[in-house]
């Protein structure tokens, strides 16, 4: 079937089977491999994307469900100049990245949180990340990076 939606702020139309997941649509049909496949049961969050402003596990979304809707993936997260945005740069600066496999999902979770709660506490950040597993970092520097991003964005708004 033809699936038409907005992907990273660009309209796309892609012919794909109707019984695949959004994750498979992104990875196998659109070759956007930043969203990772790691459990396919919605437990690990490595495939996290933002669907109409909500963080979702793309492995649990049927591809046709995104018709007419807006999907943001890690490939759509960047600064206006094309470089890393402030969240991504903070992940680098705070040492939040080790093996990096969970990191696209973590950044999507961080961005989704700040869309709804621009000034979260550390505990609120931890709760927002609870659906994203990381085996390397112990989460602490990821929380640091998201907290720093929230604070710097708040300063810019002020």
């Amino acid at each position: 079937m033809l699936i038409q939606f907005t992907l990273n702020n660009q309209p796309v139309a892609v012919e794909a089977p109707s019984d695949i997941t959004l994750l498979a649509l992104l990875r196998d049909h659109l070759r956007l491999t930043g969203s990772k496949e790691a459990c396919e049961v919605g437990e690990c969050g490595a495939c996290s994307v933002i669907l109409d402003g909500e963080l979702v596990n793309s492995c649990l979304v049927a591809a046709p469900q995104v018709s007419g809707r807006s999907v943001i993936t890690i490939e759509g997260v960047r600064a206006p100049d094309g470089g890393p945005n402030d969240m991504q740069q903070n992940f680098i600066s705070y040492g939040a990245v080790q093996c990096g496999f969970c990191i696209p999902g973590m950044i999507m979770a961080g961005e989704a949180l700040l869309l709804k709660n621009p000034q979260p506490t550390r505990q609120q950040i931890r709760v927002a990340l609870a659906g994203n597993l990381c085996r390397c970092t112990g989460y602490q520097q990821i929380v640091d990076a998201i907290e720093a991003t929230a604070k710097s964005r708040a300063r810019q708004r002020a």
């Binding site: 956007l32 491999t33 930043g34 890393p84 992940f91 680098i92 990245v97 990096g100």
Partner: peptide
């Protein structure tokens, strides 16, 4: 970290 940029951008190519 020297390999962090590609990882935060989702462009690092893992085997899969």
């Amino acid at each position: 970290r020297v390999d962090a940029l590609e990882k935060v951008r989702g462009t690092a190519r893992f085997v899969g």
